[in-house]
Amino acid sequence: KKIKIKIKVYNPETKEVLELEIEVSEEEAEELAKKLAEELEKKGYKIEEVEI
């Protein structure tokens, strides 16, 4: 079964909002969402919402 992940991120420095969407297997979904959120935060983005 495929799971659709939508991530909306906001960069306070540039006032930019990015929306990302990807489909992955159920097993990958939670781990991938967690890794993406961590990487984006390292780059200065503030995570507003992660929906699985």
Rank of each mutant, 00 (worst) to 15 (best):
K1C: 11
K1W: 04
K1M: 05
I3L: 11
I3Q: 08
I3W: 15
K4N: 11
K4D: 03
I5E: 00
I5N: 00
K6R: 14
K6H: 11
I7D: 00
K8V: 04
K8H: 03
V9T: 05
V9H: 04
V9E: 00
V9K: 00
V9N: 01
N11T: 04
N11K: 11
P12E: 11
P12C: 09
P12D: 05
P12N: 06
E13W: 09
E13A: 11
E13V: 09
E13I: 13
E13C: 04
T14E: 03
T14S: 08
T14W: 07
T14N: 12
K15F: 13
K15Q: 04
K15N: 10
E16F: 13
E16D: 08
E16C: 14
V17G: 12
V17F: 12
V17K: 13
E19Y: 15
L20C: 09
L20A: 03
L20N: 02
L20Q: 02
L20P: 01
E21Y: 09
E21F: 12
I22P: 01
I22N: 07
E23K: 09
E23D: 13
V24Q: 02
S25F: 08
S25E: 12
E26F: 07
E26D: 06
E27S: 13
E27W: 07
E27F: 14
E30H: 15
E30N: 11
E30C: 15
E31D: 04
L32K: 13
L32A: 15
L32F: 08
L32C: 13
A33E: 02
A33S: 05
K34M: 09
K35C: 04
K35R: 08
K35Q: 07
L36T: 03
A37E: 04
E38Q: 13
E39Y: 10
E39W: 06
L40H: 01
L40E: 00
L40Q: 00
E41V: 08
K42I: 02
K43M: 14
K43I: 07
G44S: 00
G44E: 01
K46L: 15
K46N: 09
K46I: 15
K46P: 12
I47R: 00
I47Q: 01
I47W: 01
E48I: 12
E48N: 04
E49F: 14
E49S: 14
E49Q: 10
V50H: 01
V50G: 00
E51D: 07
I52V: 06
I52T: 02
I52G: 01
